[in-house]
Amino acid sequence: MDRRRVEWHGLRPFHLGRLCGDARGRRRRTGAQRDDTYRLVCGAFDLDAERGRDFGTKIGVAADRCYGDYKELIAMEAGREDGVEVVSIATPNFTHYEITKACLEAGLHVICEKPLFFTVAECDEVAKLAEEKGLIVGVSYGFTGHPLVHQMAAMVRKGMLGEIRIVDMQYSHGFNSGDDVGAGEAVKWRTNPKTAGPTFVLGDIGTHLYYLSEVVLPHLKIEKLLCDRKAFIPTRAPLEDHATVLMHYDNGARGRLWVSSVDAGNMGSQRYRFVGSKASIEWSDAHPDQLIYEVQGEPNRILHHGMPYLEEESLAADRMGALHTEGLGDSWANIYLWIAQAIDAKRRGDEAFLRSHHYPGIKAGTGGVRWLENCVRSADAGAAWIDFK
């Protein structure tokens, strides 16, 4: 029985508010509404208030609940009996900390984009505030809702790979291969340290790799790290559009992670390979319904999502069944569902459920920021090996 779904049945949807830097983010919005776990009731949908109001009304939000900014949203919704309960934050990085704090102070749960904040100190402060308020902070690590990600985690946990020796991960695309002349606002703020923070591609896409590896390999901890980063487009410096990170884990395993937005011709893909002493597994979001399982001395196998030979954790996250292909929208829907279940459990005071329930929360967001801090420290030291702190 799918515990994660059963726990939700019969409960009313949370009232969701959406904060965006521009009127996009369809996969997040539709993912949130997929299971009727949230009902979109208000938002500040664009830095341009008029454009945001036009967008909001077109997707069914009442005009008087399309606000100019998050401060207006919080103030106006506070007096409503049907007011917002959860706020989804998909604004530029530099606003995450300020908006999250304001929402928590107003008694609202938060689902925030990654990287969560600029520093671990900010994460720790917000984690303390959320605990004091009895609220949940979820983080939009949307790729880890894929069923076969949890199949990999189960296989590692059961010892099917043996002792993990090698971790190899890649997330690259070519959409920033040219210079930024005439680039849109979404590119400009991501390559500006004041608005993006201390990294570009490491924070924008590298944190997805890091968190997914944490889901699959929760028992491995990084001891040392080396980060080499470069801006192939000079105007992006000191931020990087390409980076390689080498990692030493506490069991002796070795890791390599590389990210790039100047991988010319690549339309965007992630690849993960985890190698153990007995076998290896490999998964890519380009083929999310297939997992390659290679046992030393045996024929290679391709495992398909939704099949009864998979582990319970994978089947519990499956939405389509084996005959139909799952996609990113299904993965995002799982993430929002799992966060909704965490919010519900927090409201009911069910701490036992929260301790056993999987969802990307404040701890996951803090872990990503900690990893970024170490990457920057290594890169700024001339791509030096550093102790992971």
Rank of each mutant, 00 (worst) to 15 (best):
N300S: 13
R34E: 08
P92I: 14
Y171W: 12
V87D: 06
A253R: 07
E298Q: 15
R190E: 08
E77T: 08
C227W: 01
H324W: 09
G382I: 08
G107H: 04
I281V: 15
K363P: 00
A75Q: 07
A317R: 14
V86C: 02
Q290R: 12
M267W: 03
C42L: 01
R236T: 02
E85W: 11
V167N: 00
A102W: 04
L47S: 04
D330P: 03
G178I: 00
Y249D: 10
H357Q: 14
T144G: 00
F388T: 09
I205V: 14
G60S: 09
C20Y: 06
H109T: 05
R236F: 07
I99H: 03
G327W: 11
G368P: 06
P308L: 05
S88Y: 11
D263C: 10
P288Y: 10
N192Q: 03
R190Q: 14
R80P: 02
I281F: 07
L104I: 15
I339F: 01
G31Q: 09
W385F: 02
G327M: 10
A264R: 14
G107M: 04
C103N: 05
L226S: 13
F94W: 14
P299D: 10
G368L: 02
L161W: 08
D285S: 15
Q296S: 08
K278Q: 07
A106R: 10
P147A: 06
C123M: 11
R5D: 13
E113V: 13
G10C: 01
H219T: 14
E105N: 07
Q33F: 01
P193C: 02
V137K: 01
V6Y: 04
G52F: 07
A381N: 11
W8G: 06
T235K: 11
D344Y: 14
F55H: 13
E294H: 13
P147V: 03
A345P: 06
P360L: 10
I386Y: 02
L11K: 12
A49G: 07
L19D: 01
I59N: 03
